[in-house]
Amino acid sequence: MTVSEVIAESAPVYPRVLLKLSGEALMGDQGFGLHPPTVNRIALEVKRAHERGIELCLVIGGGNIFRGLSASAQGMDRAQADYMGMLATVMNALGMQSALEGLGIHTRVQSAIPMDTVCEPYIRRRAMRHLEKGRVVIFAAGTGNPYFTTDTAATLRAMEMSCNAIFKGTSVDGIYDSDPKLNPSAQRYDRISYDEVLARNLKVMDASAIALARDNTLPIVVFSLRQEGAMTDVLYGRGRFTVVGP
């Protein structure tokens, strides 16, 4: 290792981050539910970062189990459907907790909807203390309110936890001007502004989450979770990713 590599390895660009995962990221090639090998692979990425002293918290969606917006479109009351979606995120959080603790990583799940028999209620100061003690905190049940997505919940929790960035793990290595799976000539952005994301309707996160991040100058880093070690590389400013920022 060169001197510059040693310095880079000892000084992460983002020492405290919130990792945002979609529920679909946990289902692998299945059409529904949790795929344990996929969950374990993602947990291993979190472990690699955690072992380097990165303080980590997570927000996981629930779309692999239940999607409130889709149910609402089929006639279900929107608020009721959203509450059901929040419960799905708790199931995913518990699944990820199990995978992480199987790797020896101490975790805490905090839910915005109190359910004391399975996890802690969300208490900001307690969550901060968990991070300071080296525990991974998984925030479940969104904001606890209907009509808010887990993208917005992730941005809110990242600000409350004083995170340096939101890491959005996807199936591609950044943000493209069109779908790279459909267009081989799609161009990847190294960096793009919040306003450009909104104006181009690039679907990185929902508009409320992007606007909230913009108003608080919180970077959003989009990278591929499918590449082994990618998350750790991005934490140190290496690899392929896109930064949404000022």
Rank of each mutant, 00 (worst) to 15 (best):
L19Y: 00
R67N: 07
M128K: 05
L156K: 00
K133W: 03
V234L: 04
S178L: 14
I138P: 04
R200I: 15
P184E: 14
Y176H: 13
Q187H: 15
G33N: 12
L34M: 13
D29M: 11
L212P: 01
M96E: 06
F148P: 00
A209Q: 03
M205P: 01
Q80Y: 13
A43M: 14
E5R: 13
A99D: 11
K20N: 14
I138M: 07
T2I: 12
E160C: 04
V90N: 08
I105G: 06
G134V: 02
D190F: 11
Y189K: 04
I54F: 09
I220R: 03
L198T: 11
P246A: 13
A141G: 05
S224L: 07
A79S: 15
G142H: 02
V172Q: 01
R238M: 02
E45C: 00
D77T: 08
L103C: 14
V59G: 07
G23Q: 08
P15H: 05
A79W: 15
F32R: 13
H35D: 15
L44T: 10
A127I: 08
L182D: 09
V39H: 09
V136N: 01
D116M: 03
H106L: 15
G62R: 03
V17C: 04
P146T: 15
D233C: 07
L212I: 11
A209K: 09
L202V: 09
R188P: 10
G53T: 09
D190N: 09
V13S: 03
T155D: 06
T149Y: 04
V221M: 01
T89H: 01
I210M: 07
V39S: 12
G134K: 09
E55F: 00
R214A: 12
Q30K: 15
K47A: 05
R67G: 01
V172E: 07
V222S: 00
R214E: 08
H35R: 13
G53W: 06
S208D: 12
D206W: 09
C163D: 06
I138R: 02
A141T: 05
L103K: 10
G239H: 11
M115P: 05
E24C: 14
S10L: 09
N216I: 04
D179L: 13
I113M: 07
M205F: 03
L218W: 01
F241V: 03
V46C: 00
V118F: 07
H106K: 15
Y83L: 14
S98W: 11
R129G: 07
A49G: 04
D29R: 14
E24Y: 14
K47G: 02
H106A: 14
R238W: 02
V243K: 01
H50I: 01
R48F: 04
H106V: 15
A213H: 01
V90G: 10
Y83H: 14
M76A: 13
E24L: 15
G169Y: 06
D190I: 11
L156C: 00
K47V: 03
N92E: 12
R124C: 10
E228T: 10
M96K: 08
V90P: 11
V244Q: 00
Q187P: 08
G245I: 03
A43I: 10
N92G: 12
T217H: 11
Y194R: 06
D179Y: 08
G104A: 10
P114M: 06
Q74H: 06
S72D: 13
M205H: 07
T117S: 11
K203V: 09
Q30H: 12
Y176S: 11
T107Q: 13
G144Y: 03
D82G: 11
A88R: 04
I175G: 00
